[in-house]
Amino acid sequence: MRDALHEIVEEFADTPKELRLPLLLQFADALPALPQRLLDDRDAMEPVEECTAPLFLAVEVEPGQPVRLFFDAPREAPTSRGFASVLHAGLDGGTPDEILSTPNDFYLSMGLDDLVSPLRMRGMSGMLARVKRRVAAGISA
């Protein structure tokens, strides 16, 4: 697992249970805004159907360049924003190999499944699966 993502997983796991949701909220608040070029071209973003709230992502893969990830979720959907922000903070700027080697169930170690319905937690795996698919398509293109 990429170091940056691993550190986030550890941070959640080491945080007392009652402070994990506030921590996820901090991530939700820290999700960067979309760059103008994506705001102008919403069709370039892929909807993530595994999430219960409207969530969109975009992945930019250029040969020899770090992978760039972009997520968009409404403020009224802080849990989805929080999940997106964890992936952004952990994987944005990584190499294709680092992203593709992320375990699909990495989030199980965060200790959130007691707090968020496990079924809803899978919104996170839906996002990761789509990111990986886009990265794989990008390097083979």
Binding site: P22, L25, A28, E76, A77, P78, T79, S117, R120
Partner: peptide
Amino acid sequence: DEDVLLYNTGHIPGAVKIDWHTDLNDP
């Protein structure tokens, strides 16, 4: 709420949170 973080982003003053998953369902 459906979204378990929504209460934490702001709620009616004085309101408590009751979570359908963690408070009302047997684990």
